[in-house]
Design a protein around this nucleic acid. Sequence first.
DNA 1: CGGCATCCCGTAAACGTTTACGACTCATGG
DNA 2: CCATGAGTCGTAAACGTTTACGGGATGCCG
Lengths: 339, 339
Amino acid sequence: MTRRTTGTTTIQTVADAAGVSIASVSRVLNGLTANEETIKRVNDAVKAVGYVPNSAAKSLKTNQTGQVAFAMENIGNAAYLAMVQAIQPVLRAGGYRLLLHSTDADVQDEIDVLRSLGQRYVDGLILCPLRVTRRHVAELKRAQAPVVVIGQLPKSCPNDNVRVASRPGVALAIQHLADNDRTRIALVDGPVDTVPGKARYAGYQDGLKQAGLEEDPDLVLFADFTVDGGAKAARALLQQKRPPDAIFAANDLMALGVLQAAREAGLDVPGDVAVVGMDDTELAATAWPPLTSVSLGAQERGRLAAELLLERLSEPDRPRQWVTVEPRLVVRASSGEAT
Amino acid sequence: MTRRTTGTTTIQTVADAAGVSIASVSRVLNGLTANEETIKRVNDAVKAVGYVPNSAAKSLKTNQTGQVAFAMENIGNAAYLAMVQAIQPVLRAGGYRLLLHSTDADVQDEIDVLRSLGQRYVDGLILCPLRVTRRHVAELKRAQAPVVVIGQLPKSCPNDNVRVASRPGVALAIQHLADNDRTRIALVDGPVDTVPGKARYAGYQDGLKQAGLEEDPDLVLFADFTVDGGAKAARALLQQKRPPDAIFAANDLMALGVLQAAREAGLDVPGDVAVVGMDDTELAATAWPPLTSVSLGAQERGRLAAELLLERLSEPDRPRQWVTVEPRLVVRASSGEAT
DNA sequence: CGGCATCCCGTAAACGTTTACGACTCATGG
DNA sequence: CCATGAGTCGTAAACGTTTACGGGATGCCG
């Protein structure tokens, strides 16, 4: 005896309309073995009653959601945005939907996301943490779903990982400035207690050393990763008695702030002071003068992370993958010749 | 007799550990009536076994997913990005997760998203369509979940709606240019077969009329909403025998392209030609010269749409809401005095 | 004609929750 | 002492799928 059909159209509705059992409907829908005749009747019935499978029920049985989450600090940041843009098409091609988590750089929030994987509302997670604490590591180890981490990661973490060598990337920029005869090269860095902030400072020191330049503590300032942060820092730098002839900003946003401060001070870029940014976002190309910037391959990292995740999902026991993306210096007008 | 506990920790695991029935566990977890003693034992058990409720099972019973989707053309567009940034915190505060759909301006994709609401993987949808076809209307009417539409919508659609009067917004800009003694004001519009494209053209005509200027067909070009599109169109405009002394671009991206073309042609902005953009994105403020732009309140629209959706979700039968956001002219240097 | 393999299909159980219903305890009041 | 009601709790059904299992046709071969 067939179950009574309720208000919502379920697989049972289809079964009744096609005159077959719900098992047959399910089989046809999932492309399993079935008679030509039944296939046709089921497909017709599906159309006729306008059936759409309920994803919650499907998830409950199959333990798969067809969803993947991406957690980052703030999607307003162009670097993360580039990642999202790269991640989306890969996931979609793999039949997954994309969920977004903005953590606002709140460590607790990142941890919560990791914890909530136990709810099984996603099949996997791409996580892009600003800093990796001991709690991160602990949660990563016991995560209930595959997690791909974008960024530096301790070797003890069992997760797939995509990283970029930002430190040599900074050095690349410093070297480039030195090659153009800049000798007082300043650094406008982000917060020093973040992983990127630390790496950039180290790269700055590397670059100076390679170029045979001395580090001048007056030329290193820390701000936050915003236009205003960059502008404030640059104003301070440019007012010094011995101002820099080049400024490397840890971020395109900050570099824009630097450009702004230079204009205010009546300085020509690159004539009086060269400026180089980092991330090579859309902003760099459209700035004036067009901004030389170190590309950290955000798009590429996003794409790779998504691909790694999909591969892991289809093959859970494969060995852990680590991928490194190479930084690339994109030279534009802002780092041209001095006058 | 209690059911055998399987590998995964379910509500049954908790029940066994606490020595109560699964019904009691569920009641405690959902804050329903229960004895102090039981509450404590359940909570302890939850901690002890590390229980996290399975969201698929919950969804299946309650018919709620705790998820909301936002579908737009392409998150790379700063206007949509601003919406996402505004939507996210509202949803999160309401306890919802955010799902992202990039439709790439593919009408079929938008329709598919609407259709897929039948799968019930989200409780509601915020849709930001580029154009609204007859099929859109049809699907909107039979949508299986509440949909809030951002953008122009026929009155026949039963959906909540947030719109912006972009047409008077454009007129505002034209008026502003005319007030500054510009007489040959060009329009670089987006595709004319899109809703925004049409509205901007109409607003352009309105503005000219208000200012007592004649429309010159040579001064109206259509391109796509990109930097390159704007640059190409501007090059064509500036090479004419009677070039414009002002250019309104339908979009900040296109306006950046216009700025670029003006620089290539050795023209001063705003001395030789004034430029005004639209959307007032981050790009406008950081451009050089800083770009005058018409704000269409993307953030505000996003926030309002999210709020409308949450209200609709908690009160499904409330009357349909229509909200209009007022455009605002943000004057910066690019539309200053002519020389 | 019997035995056996093959092909389809239907029955029913299971996934992990929520919740209606009824049962039980205990206190209260007539 | 019984009836009533309030406060808790457990049993079991239900949500809409997928899938293991077995049974009924059918065809083929010995």
